[in-house]
Amino acid sequence: MLRYTLLRILGAIPTLLLVIALAFLMVHAAPGGPFDDERALPADVEANIAAAYHLDEPLPQQFLRYMSGLLQGDLGPSYRYRDYTVAELIGTAFPYSLKLGALAMALALLLGVTAGTVAALRQGTALDKVVMGFSMTGISIPVFVIAPVLVLFLAVKLQWLPAGWSGTTGMSRYLLPVITLALPQIAYIARLTRASMIDVLSRDFIRTAYAQGLGTVTVVRVHALKPAMLPVLSYMGPAIAAILTGSVVVEEIFGIPGLGQFFVRGALNRDYTLVLGIVVFYASLIVFLNLLVDILYGAIDPRVRYQ
């Protein structure tokens, strides 16, 4: 297991480097710069600014400079929020995004796995069809449609939950954004769980478990859940990415001061260091979480470790 883990970690490093390099190139290839505003600056001022931010150096050198900063946790200064470094900005915004994403993920897993398992056990019944119907809808409706509908019903009409962010405190303000973000994932995970649970329940070792007098709940909990979770676990990588991208939209809609909002502002303002910093940060996060998923996979399926 240790060997497997180490191999996975080593394998993740090149991926990460590649992602950073690509992000760096893409940001630099984008037309325009942070300081070309509507009104042109005098040439010498422009040169001074370029020199201060090392924009006059050749690209490879800039990249090396960026990487060496990165190794020390320095993502450079923000071009727009002049008093802050990118790292500081991420530090203030990320906790909101983290809370939002983690809650959405937890909700999606909890409800998705439960619904999928129940549907699998009641395969072919009305309950199964309801769950599947719901999840088909959940998958096909985009976040920017779900959000206003939820706000309209739960916040405006029924007045159960606060509609916006500002002016409210506590956890209740997270509820609508979390539900919005989690809905498509609940639907997808429910479908995945149902399919893999049906497959696992038809295997011989499940028959053995029933032959031992175990009740359905024990059979599922002890014997079926672990193998049935393997496809769901594989989906965690894409799910995490989907939640991160989704959160950019959701934060914008609900006005949450998270990383997504900074990202959108950064892009609109051509604040390239900020955009690059967030991309690098998110990419590392995704690579890290995927690594975690891989390791968990090895822990669940003992046969994977030997391959």
Binding site: D204, A209, G213, V222, P227, I300
Partner: peptide, 19 residues
Amino acid sequence: QALNPYLRIGAQLRQIPLT
């Protein structure tokens, strides 16, 4: 096929006396 490949032998067998 008849034993659960994802579970240690002990974990499979202990369930029987417990149940």
